[in-house]
């Protein structure tokens, strides 16, 4: 248990640092790309976990990113919502019996893993950009930015999840 706290605490810090010190500093926005790799923490978090704790962690992760990027609570809201609906998406992508199979996301089948990643990433990015623009006059720009950024984030997260699995073996 203590090892888990240390492990996930360290993961939390590492994803936040990668996001705020590297990805946020590179100008991708000229191409409508905004990678948010940090939600990999939420996506790869173990399935068998106290749900209240998980929801709280999602909120905390989003709030930390908000603190660094002075964005109020937009990351916190988006992370909280994808954290809350994650069980539904897990059921949809991996089948209803995922909980009994001791599912490990990094070692699951690539197809369903990508489905699962894509749905959560798109929801997260859409919520994020809607809150960021806060106006329906920009609806086309919101949708475009969601599309491009989701593809970019998905790419980064799939690569990372493959790399992480190889190291685990």
């Amino acid at each position: 248990m203590n090892r888990d706290i240390l492990k996930y605490g360290l993961q939390f810090i590492v994803v936040v640092l990668i996001q705020v010190l590297i990805l946020n500093q590179i100008d991708f926005t000229s191409y409508n790309l905004d990678p948010y790799l940090y939600i990999i923490f939420i996506l790869l978090f173990p399935v068998q976990v106290n749900r209240s704790l998980f929801i709280f962690l999602c909120f905390l992760l989003g709030l930390t990113i908000d603190m660094f990027s002075n964005s109020g609570g937009i990351h916190a809201t988006s992370c909280l919502i994808i954290g809350f609906i994650r069980p539904v998406i897990l059921k949809f992508s991996f089948g209803t019996s995922y909980e009994f199979h001791q599912l490990k996301i990094t070692q699951s089948e690539l197809g369903s893993r990508i489905t699962y990643f894509t749905i959560l990433i798109v929801i997260h990015h859409l919520l994020l950009f809607i809150q960021d623009y806060f106006s329906f006059t920009y609806i086309i720009r919101i949708l475009l930015q969601t599309l491009y950024s989701s593809i970019f984030t998905l790419f980064l997260i799939v690569i990372s999840s493959i790399l992480l699995r190889k190291r685990a073996k």
């Binding site: 908000d66 109020g72 916190a76 809201t77 909280l80 919502i81």
Partner: peptide
């Protein structure tokens, strides 16, 4: 979830 949601939306609106 609802409690935290209200808090985070509160932060956004406040900002």
């Amino acid at each position: 979830f609802l409690l935290l949601l209200i808090i985070s939306i509160g932060f956004t609106v406040q900002n």
